[in-house]
C-alpha cells in the first residue's frame, strides 16, 4: 500500500489528503495544495529554496517525504504574514535591505532567517552568514540577507 492518508496542519489549517509514499512535501505543497511559496531549485537538498518549518524548525521540504508530516505543523512563507496581510518584521527587513532580486530563493531565505533568529544564531555577521549558508542566492543578495536578519534579530532582542 503506497497510498497513505495523512493529516497535518498547514499554516494553521488542517489538511487531509491521500499521498503516494514517494511524494515529497515540496511536491505536495506545490502540485497538490497550490501552496507555491516554497520553490524547487534542486530537489536534492542542495539549495534551500524549498525551506519550510516543521513544528517550528527549518527543514528542506524536497527531502521530506510527505508521509512524514502526518500529525505535524507545517509553516510555509504563506503563513508568515499576519492575518490582515501585515508583514512579519523580517519580511519588511528583506524589503528595507533589498535582500532580494529575482525573488525565487526569497521565501526559503525568509523561512531560514526566521529560524536562524529563533535559534539564536545571530551573535555576529559571521554566525549569520554561516547559518544562512544553506540558502543559495544566485542573484547575489547575501549582504542584504545578512543585514535583514541582523536587524530583525536586534529588534526582537530589544523587545
Amino acid at each position: 500500500m503506497n497510498s497513505i492518508k495523512v493529516s497535518f496542519r498547514l499554516n494553521r489549517k488542517t489538511v487531509d489528503l491521500v499521498v503516494d509514499s514517494r511524494e515529497s512535501l515540496l511536491d505536495v505543497l506545490r502540485e497538490r495544495l497550490d501552496t507555491t511559496g516554497a520553490k524547487k531549485g534542486c530537489d536534492q537538498g542542495q539549495c534551500g529554496a524549498c525551506t519550510v518549518h516543521i513544528d517550528g524548525r527549518r527543514v528542506v521540504s524536497c527531502l521530506t517525504p510527505a508521509v512524514q508530516v502526518a500529525g505535524r505543523e507545517v509553516t510555509t512563507i504563506e503563513g508568515v504574514a499576519g492575518p490582515d496581510g501585515e508583514l512579519h518584521p523580517l519580511q519588511q527587513a528583506f524589503i528595507d535591505n533589498d535582500a532580494l532580486q529575482c525573488g525565487y530563493c526569497t521565501p526559503g531565505q525568509i523561512m531560514s532567517g526566521l529560524a536562524c533568529i529563533k535559534e539564536g544564531h545571530t551573535t555576529d555577521d559571521a554566525e549569520i552568514r554561516e547559518y544562512m549558508s544553506g540558502n543559495l542566492c544566485r542573484c547575489g543578495c547575501y549582504v542584504g540577507v545578512v543585514a535583514a536578519v541582523r536587524e530583525t534579530a536586534r529588534k526582537e532582542a530589544g523587545r
Binding site: 537538498g45 525551506t51 527549518r58 527543514v59 544564531h121 547559518y131 544553506g134
Partner: peptide, 12 residues
C-alpha cells in the same frame, strides 16, 4: 556537526 551540510539538513 555544525560544519556539516546546512542547518535545515541538520534539523532533519
Amino acid at each position: 556537526l555544525w560544519r556539516a551540510a546546512s542547518q535545515q539538513l541538520r534539523n532533519m
